[in-house]
Amino acid sequence: MLKRRLLTAALLIILIVLEILYLNSTTLAVIFAIVVALSAWEWAGLSGYLARAQRIGYVAIVLFLLILVYSAHSFWPTAITVFLLSAAVLWWLIAAYWVLRYQQQCDLLPNSSPLRAWLGGVVLIPSWLAVYQLHQQYGEYWVLFLFVLIWGADTGAYAAGRLWGRHKLASHVSPGKTWEGFAGALLVGALFAGGAAYFWLDESEALYQIGFVLLSLATVVVSVLGDLLESLFKRKAGVKDSGQILPGHGGMLDRIDSLTSAAPFFLAGLLLMGSLS
C-alpha cells in the first residue's frame, strides 16, 4: 500500500510540474478542467447523487460553467476575477464557521443534495480560475510555488503529526489531524516562503517580501481549511475517500481539496498586494 501510494505521488508530482512549466495557460486550463470534472463526479456522490446519470449531469453542468467563465473572462477579466475571488473568500469564511461549529457538535451543513451540489461549484470553479489566471498573469513559477507550498505544508503536517502529534486539531471533523501537525505545516511553509522571498524576490522591497511570506502562511492555514471541509462532507456522506481513481490516495478531490481553498486566496492576496504597492 505504501509503495503504491509513493509511486502514485511521485508520478503525479512529475506530471504536474511538467504541465505547469511547459504548457501554455490555455492548455493548462483545459487539463485542470479535466481534474475539476473528475472532482465534480466525486462531489456529486458526496452530495447524495449516486446514480450514474445524475453524476454525469452534474459534471456536464460544471464543465458548462467553466466554459462560460472562461468565455466571460476573455471579455471582462477584471470583473469576472473580482466576482469569483470575492465569492470564494466569502464562502471559505462561511466554511470556516461551519467547520468550527461542527467541531463544537453543531452541524450546519445542508442536507439538501441540490444545495450541496451548488456548493461544489463554489468550491471548484473559483479554484480553476485562480490557477488559470495565476499562470496567465504571473507566470508558471508562481503556480509552481503555490503547489510546492501546499505540498510542503502537507508533508510537514504529516511528519510532525506522526512524530509529535498529541493534541487533536478537529477531532470531530478529521481525527487524524493534530495541532503539532498544523505547526509543522506552518514551519515548512515559513521556511519555504522565506527562502523564496530571499532568493526569488531579492530585488523587491522588504515590505513586499514580508507581505509575501505572511500571505504564504495565511495560504497554508486556508489550505488546511479546504482539507477539513472535504473531510466534513465525507463524514456526512459516510465515506472514507471521495473516490478510488488514484491508487493509494483515494479520489481526485482528496488530492486537490487543499488547492480549492488555497488557490483563490493566494491569487486574491497577490492582486491586493499589487494594488497596494
Rank of each mutant, 00 (worst) to 15 (best):
A117N: 00
D227G: 00
I150N: 14
T155F: 13
L217H: 00
L144K: 02
K177Y: 01
Q105D: 14
L100G: 15
Q133S: 13
G161Y: 10
Y58F: 11
L12I: 11
A87N: 06
M252R: 03
W151Y: 01
G211K: 03
A87W: 05
V213I: 04
Y141E: 14
V122P: 03
Y198H: 06
G189C: 07
K240V: 04
W118C: 14
V221H: 12
L15G: 13
L90K: 06
E205V: 14
A268Q: 02
W41T: 00
S86C: 02
K234N: 04
H135T: 01
D107Q: 09
S223N: 03
G139L: 02
H172A: 15
V30G: 09
G194T: 07
I256Y: 00
A263K: 07
F265V: 09
L276M: 13
E203I: 05
L90E: 09
G48L: 11
V220W: 07
L100S: 15
W118P: 11
L65P: 06
D154W: 10
K3I: 14
L272P: 03
F212V: 00
A157K: 06
W41D: 01
L68N: 08
P175K: 07
V213D: 00
A153V: 00
W142I: 03
V35K: 09
L23W: 07
A60C: 05
L90P: 04
A157W: 01
I125T: 08
K3D: 13
V143C: 05
T155C: 11
G48N: 11
P247C: 07
P247T: 07
E203G: 12
E203M: 08
L149S: 02
I150Y: 08
K234V: 03
V122I: 08
A263G: 08
W91L: 12
G251W: 00
V99A: 06
S216H: 03
L23R: 08
S216E: 02
V213R: 00
W179T: 08
Y70E: 13
L85A: 09
A51D: 09
L134I: 03
G176V: 09
K3V: 14
S47Q: 04
I56Y: 13
Y198K: 10
A157H: 03
W164M: 12
A268R: 06
I67F: 15
G251H: 01
R116F: 02
D254I: 02
D154E: 11
S231V: 11
L270I: 07
V59T: 04
A262C: 10
G226V: 05
S112A: 12
N111A: 14
W91I: 07
Q104M: 12
A197I: 06
T178Q: 12
A9M: 09
I94L: 14
Y158T: 06
S261P: 02
L93H: 11
A9G: 10
T219L: 08
G274N: 12
T155D: 10
G195N: 05
R255Y: 02
L12N: 05
V143E: 02
A29Y: 04
